[in-house]
Design a binder for these strands. Sequence first.
DNA 1: TCTGGGGTCCTAGGACCC
DNA 2: TCTGGGGTCCTAGGACCC
Length: 456
Amino acid sequence: MAVEHHSAVAGTALGMTLSQQQPARQTVAATAVVPAFALVDCNNFYASCEKLFRPDLANKAVVVLSNNDGCVVARCPLAKQLGVRMGIPAFQLRPLLQTGAVVAFSSNYALYADMSARVMQTLAELAPAVEVYSIDEAFLDVSGLSAADRAQLGQQIRQRIRQWLGISVCVGIAPSKTLAKLANAAAKHYPATGGVVDLTDPVRQRKLLALTPVGEVWGIGNKLSQRLQTLQINTALQLATADAGWIRQQFSVVEQRIVQELNGQSCLRLEDLPQPKQQIISSRSFGTVICDRQQMSEALCEYISRACQKLRQEQQQACQLTVFLRTSPFARQPYYADSRSGRLALPSSDTRDFFQLLPALLAAIWRDGHRYNKAGVMLTDFYPAMQVQPDLFASASSADPTGRGPQLMQVLDLINHSGHGKIWFAGQGIRQCWQMKRQSLSPAYTTNWQQLAWVR
DNA sequence: TCTGGGGTCCTAGGACCC
DNA sequence: TCTGGGGTCCTAGGACCC
């Protein structure tokens, strides 16, 4: 999602300088090609997806809520103008919703994921290498292009994604990913840039860095920002001009890399081949709190089942299962949270193997009398499904006496992906009264034949 | 009443080996 | 000048990202 921007930065002056496309000195690089990255980031992505299929809301303030309709995670520009802050709990929004000043949607992940895939597919046609960094962002390899070509490509990306998909994006171009992030933020913040900022020129880099609070640098969060400020480092420029070795001593190699990246020295390469996952988490806040152990067990079975399905999709197997639960940190009752891990003798992706670990883990962390509002499971310690080493001494899975578990899981996944119905284990429960709240869910316009948009 | 979910990386420190 | 356990693996916890 888009980073929040501080509005206090003196904008117009920089907007003007950045927008003047200075014909940069063009070094014809006969030697090694200097790396260049373009960061393409969709504007207000979730809110844009919702508005796309609701032209009647074009002039309305629209926000999208987190899972469980918990808090605001995306806002269209009109909602920002109304002063709706990122992350506020949905109940604080109620007055604005009741007057009709703001329209809220539940998270429609099916829609956003599908729109995201279309954006990424479009980008793949425009650059030799693309790293899908998040649902609404991608880094592109634009090394070796002239300044004029970079500017033209930036505009072409914007134009094509707007025309083909109705989504507006901004583009930041720079010799390192960290600078490309800052360039993108500037493109979003200053309309005079035309939505594309090329930060190849060191002079312009310094200008922007001087205007950027250090906490807005990619990789500098709240804690680091505070520590840096006690060291009199308040702006991105002050961080860039700090001694990299000293920063490493004070912090770690991560922060040292940030310093180098801010100086245009690329330390983070384009990860265009997606790496296999190292952990899979499935967790949810409940629509209503759970006080009953049987219901908790059902919810955890549901999460195990989802996690294992993802694991199979990744073509991996796992050895370790962690189960966690907690009460609400906002409730008046004393806070309680705990977790336990258990191991399989052999890696597996068979849902039933992980079900067998659950009763003991849940027994170890369950306390009667609490009002639990969230729980989840985590799978770790992965092995590629094709290269699992059997254990000479461990017996085969007792959950799979026939040895045909893999085929069974495959059939299960096929049925559940077919669109013709679902099957599940009895342990997952039938009524699932703890299911999350999604009271303002929009249709799956692009992924379900029954829910296509109508044009009259 | 009502406050998200899913990831990664790094470091410190303990256990253990030689 | 003064000065000598080194190295690996694992886990928990903390920071960050969107």
